[in-house]
Design a binder for these strands. Structure first.
Length: 233
DNA sequence: CACCAGGCAAGTA
DNA sequence: TACTTGCATGGT
């Protein structure tokens, strides 16, 4: 286990490709040893995963859980049910997840799309090739790159790497990327350096979130026992 | 009290 | 194109 002493390697020093690959694999390995298998995404069905992906935008997962509990209790947790329910009632049900008016519109937009374009069959929609599916998801209001990729990886179970705020912060603090690296830069890095494997990407992203929560928060980093070497901030 | 959480879209210059 | 702002609850 490494501590969190500042790295002597300047962020600007370019690393060779093989070194980047080793560092990424070591990040995964050390995190997995620390946390064990995480079995993501927490959700009982592909649709619940899609809903969770939208509700968790810039929001703590504990709040999303409360919202999903409400959706289940009110029987809104289906494409048809959510498409038909009044938007105000939907917004009220998801209140704990924050941004509830915006997110009610987003959930409606998602269900509207599945209903119109795929006759309500989420399974059909998710069975499409990755590029087609990603393009469709991004065309839906409220679905950006991370939400689209979370749905592709965790609901459709197809191999794309999900980049989130923790991914950006951890790779930056590892000295691998710029602080403001673009989404596709980070994603391309994983795609180029690691095997294109759904189960591996699934577990890797989950491990990144756990490392981020425990050891790489914006402020108050708990650096003792951190499974990887990060630059202090 | 201030700050943050598994983003995104719309507005401005 | 490149910033900025609104959205909002609940935990630390």
């Amino acid at each position: 286990m490494y501590g969190c002493r500042p790295s002597r390697t300047p962020a600007t020093l370019p690393l060779c490709a093989a070194s980047v690959t080793r560092r990424l694999r070591r990040l995964y390995q050390r995190a997995f040893e620390h946390f064990g298998p995480l079995h993501w995404w927490p959700g009982d069905s592909p649709f619940e995963v899609c809903v969770g992906a939208i509700l968790t935008q810039n929001t703590a997962w504990t709040n999303v859980e409360k919202a999903i509990t409400n959706l289940k209790a009110r029987r809104f947790l289906s494409v048809r049910g959510m498409h038909l329910v009044d938007e105000v009632l939907l917004a009220n049900a998801i209140r704990p997840s924050g941004y509830y008016n915006q997110k009610a519109k987003k959930l409606k937009a998602f269900c509207e799309y599945v209903t119109r374009r795929h006759q309500g069959s989420l399974r059909v929609m998710l069975s499409q090739p990755i590029d087609t599916l990603r393009e469709e998801l991004l065309s839906i209001n409220g679905v950006g790159p991370e939400t689209a990729d979370s749905i592709i990886l965790y609901a459709a179970q197809q191999p794309v790497f999900v980049v989130d705020a923790y991914t950006r912060r951890i790779l930056y603090r590892m000295g691998l990327t710029a602080e403001d690296a673009a989404y596709h830069e980070l994603q391309d890095l994983f795609h180029a350096r690691l095997p294109r494997d759904t189960a591996y990407y699934n577990e890797f992203h989950a491990q990144i979130v756990y490392v981020g929560k425990e050891f790489c928060r914006k402020s108050k980093p708990r650096c003792d026992r951190c499974p990887v070497r990060l630059r202090s901030r």
